[in-house]
């Protein structure tokens, strides 16, 4: 229930970190051996919630997604399962490869975008709102089928310019606090922001259940929180900028283990 007073403390925390960061402007990549999931930065109690499916509240959305997977929708009267069969087999490893190239547009599309596209173009149903409960549940259910598998970004040269654009965003200072993603997550991941650990920003557990949200949320929602944190105007949900950033982050986390549904503070 943290209210406005709590928010003020967080802001003070960010400002405090700024003093440290301005004296340290280089943006070096994290070496592969040093990469750590956000899970490793959490308290043992929070890790325990993620580790146990009977206690992990993210599993409630996996359950909802499993129900939606077999539910017929739209004028085509088809369910996801009508085409894809059992997700346990057909969707295994799929989320680990997203965002992927969308042949029709020649641009990358993320998993949520692909599911939404399937829904409106193949099932012919009404478009699902991007951060709505149903699309989140379906995305969580599909991503959960890749849990334990290594993140495996597609080796497709057509994605390179978008990945480069994502890296550009990651390393560009923005907002009133004039911080880049890299200022915290490449250069200061072993520091703390007030009481919270600054993590390495590997998107291993998305969609994930954030205790702060009291619900499940997308990677783009988390990125929006970061941008608000540095007082930048967040990109629009589903925008090319966000997809490019997601694409770069998944490349940066290549080989790390998928955790969906992750738990984070």
């Amino acid at each position: 229930m943290p209210g406005p007073a709590a928010r003020l403390i967080v802001l003070t925390g960010v400002t405090g970190l700024l003093i440290v960061l301005t004296s340290h402007a280089s943006t070096d990549d994290i070496s592969p051996g040093e990469r750590r999931s956000g899970r490793d930065f959490m308290a043992p109690e929070t890790q325990a919630i993620q580790a146990d499916d009977t206690a992990n509240p993210g599993m409630l959305w996996v359950l909802q997604g499993a129900g939606l997977w077999t539910q017929k929708a739209g004028p085509a009267d088809q369910s996801c399962a009508s085409c894809h069969g059992a997700a346990q087999a057909s969707m295994r490893g799929v989320a680990a490869r997203y965002p992927a190239l969308d042949a029709a547009t020649g641009k990358p599309i993320d998993l949520t975008g692909r599911i939404a596209q399937c829904r409106s173009e193949r099932q012919g149903g009404t478009a699902l709102p991007r951060d709505g409960d149903e699309l989140l549940a379906l995305t969580t259910f599909v991503a959960h089928q890749s849990r334990g598998m290594p993140i495996a970004p597609p080796d497709d040269a057509r994605l390179t310019p978008f990945r480069d654009a994502g890296r550009q965003i990651f390393t560009t200072r923005m907002g009133q606090l004039d911080l880049a993603c890299a200022s915290c997550h490449d250069d200061n991941w072993n520091q703390r922001l007030a009481g919270s650990a600054v993590t390495q920003a590997h998107p291993t557990g998305y969609p994930l259940y954030r205790l702060e949200w009291q619900g499940i949320g997308s990677l783009q929602r988390r990125l929006r929180n970061c941008m608000i944190g540095v007082r930048a105007e967040p990109f629009a949900t589903g925008s090319d900028d966000f997809i490019a950033l997601e694409l770069y982050l998944m490349q940066r986390a290549a080989g790390m283990e998928m955790e969906t549904p992750g738990i984070r503070p």
Partner: peptide, 8 residues
């Protein structure tokens, strides 16, 4: 303690 970078 409080979470960092919360929602507006």
């Amino acid at each position: 303690t409080l979470a960092a970078c919360i929602e507006d």
